[in-house]
Design a protein around this nucleic acid. Structure first.
Lengths: 112, 112
DNA sequence: TTTCTATATTGCAATATTACGATAAAGATG
DNA sequence: CATCTTTATCGTAATATTGCAATATAGAAA
């Protein structure tokens, strides 16, 4: 009786980490923020509030969460804050999904 | 006075959609499920509960959410259910982040 | 049919998230 | 200094998520 010891106590650190990053993008407001940051040329952005259907404090919270997940970074620029996308984290996500895709194409396709 | 009409009423449909898919992966349990499905060769999987640190009803809920976001599909296979990853949705996510990455490399890098 | 096995659903309780108004903080401007 | 502008934080209400035990469902096996 040495089997029966499969169930783990917790998820792995890497599962927690990637879920945390992904979760930060799991809200339309935060998707919209990323897409807006992507669309403007300079990253000096104090007008994010104007392009989102949300009040300023709410936008501020969403920005905080994106920052917390390292999806964006903010630099204080006098009175304003200059937000922009953190390329490294986006790249991490890209790699994550590219890797899954690659593994999927190598898999047995004989079911489902 | 014709400006001052920037703030939208809601996010776009596409923002809602992508956020919905991404959100479904924004939990360690659901990341773990995808990674497990990726790791097993056949997709006949009734042992997902055994490899997650969660009770069966909770796993069932997470599976439902992944199915709802079209990240997995389940086929009833007699008594069991055969779950596997929906490649199309993974590919959609891959494309989404690859596209963002690509746009980022084309951008002005003169700030932040 | 009865029982077993695999999965889903229901019914909570605990916790987290989201939103907004009010307010604070801090640099810019007059 | 007083005021304006920009962003953050707090307080709080509404809602959503998560987890598990209990139970339901349905095919398989006896």
């Amino acid at each position: 009786m040495e089997t029966e010891q499969t169930k783990p106590k917790d998820f792995t650190d890497s599962q927690h980490e990637i879920a945390h990053i992904i979760k930060a993008l799991g809200h339309p407001a935060r998707v919209a923020i990323i897409e807006y940051l992507l669309s403007v040329d300079t990253c000096i952005c104090g007008d994010i509030v104007d392009v989102l259907p949300l009040a300023q404090p709410t936008v501020s919270r969403h920005l905080k969460e994106l920052k917390n997940a390292k999806l964006i970074k903010g630099t204080i620029e006098g009175n304003t804050i200059c937000y922009c996308i953190d390329e490294n984290t986006i790249e991490e996500l890209q790699n994550y999904f590219t890797n899954i895709s690659a593994k999927l194409t190598l898999k047995n396709k004989n079911c489902c």
